[in-house]
Amino acid sequence: MSNYHQIESDDRADDGNNLEFRSFLGNDSTTEPAPGRGYLRDQPTQSSFWNIEYYQPYFDVDTNTVLKRCYYTMVPNVDYLTNHLSPSPDLYGPFWTLSTMAFSLFVFSSLASSIASYLSSEPFDFDFKLLSIAVSLCYAYGLGLPLALWLALRYLGVTDWSLVEAIAIFGYGQFIWIPVSLLCVIPVPILRWALCGIAFGLSGWFLVANVYPILQTAEAKATRLIAIVIFVLHAALALTLKIQFFSYYVIEPIGGSDPITGPSPTGTSRF
C-alpha cells in the first residue's frame, strides 16, 4: 500500500536553508479588525460552551460600571435589575465581589484576632482553616445558591430569569460585607453586632426585593414562599460570619477541640 503522493510546493518551506525559528505569534495583527479591543469582537459570534469567547460578553464591562453596580447594592432602591444591571448583567463583578469578600473576611478576622492577642498578651496562633472556610462559604452561597434557585425556578416554570442574572444579584448583593468586615476589626462587641445586623438587613432586603418579583411571575402562589427560604438562609449566613470571623476565637475557642487536626491522644499518626 504505497499511498505516497507528491505535493505541490508551498511557500512555507522555502526557509529551510537558514535554521532560524520563526515566530508566528506577533504578526497576525494586520488581519485583526479592531486591534485596540484585544480579543473582543465587535459582533457577537456563536461559540460553543467550552470556548472562552462564549463567556466574553459577560465580562464586557468597564471599571466605572462595576463600581457603580457595587455601590448601588448598598442603596435601598427597588428594581436593581432593570436600573443597574442593564443592558446586560456581568459575571466579573459577582465573582470578584465574592472573592474579595472571602479574602477580606480572612484578612480582617486574622487582623482582629492578632490585635486581640496583642491586647491580651496571649500567644497568637493563627488558624489557617479560616481561609478555606471563608472561600468555600462565599462561593457556595454566592454561586451555588443562585444556581440551585435558578434550577428550582426552571423546574417550577419560571423561565424569564437567566442564570447570569441570578448570580449577579447574589454576587453583587454580598458587597456590603467587605466594608463591614473592615469595620469589624474594631474590638467592640456591640459595634460588631450592630454592623453585622446592618449588613444583614441591607443585603437581605436587596436579595428579597430583587428575587421576589421573579417569584411573583410563577403560576403557583406557593412559589413565593421561596423568599422566606432565602431570608432564612441569609440570616444563617450572617450569623455564621459573625460567629466564625468576628469573634475573638484566640481567647476562647468555640466548640471544643477539632478532632481532625488536633494531636491524637492514642499516638496514631495522621498521614
Partner: peptide, 24 residues
C-alpha cells in the same frame, strides 16, 4: 496585552488581591 484603558483597573485588581493574600 492591549486591554482597553477603561478596564485596566479591572484587570489589575485580581493581581493585587492574589499577591496581597500571599503577602498577608
Amino acid at each position: 496585552t492591549k486591554i482597553e484603558t477603561n478596564r485596566i483597573l479591572l484587570a489589575v485588581y485580581p493581581l493585587l488581591l492574589f499577591y496581597f493574600i500571599l503577602a498577608w
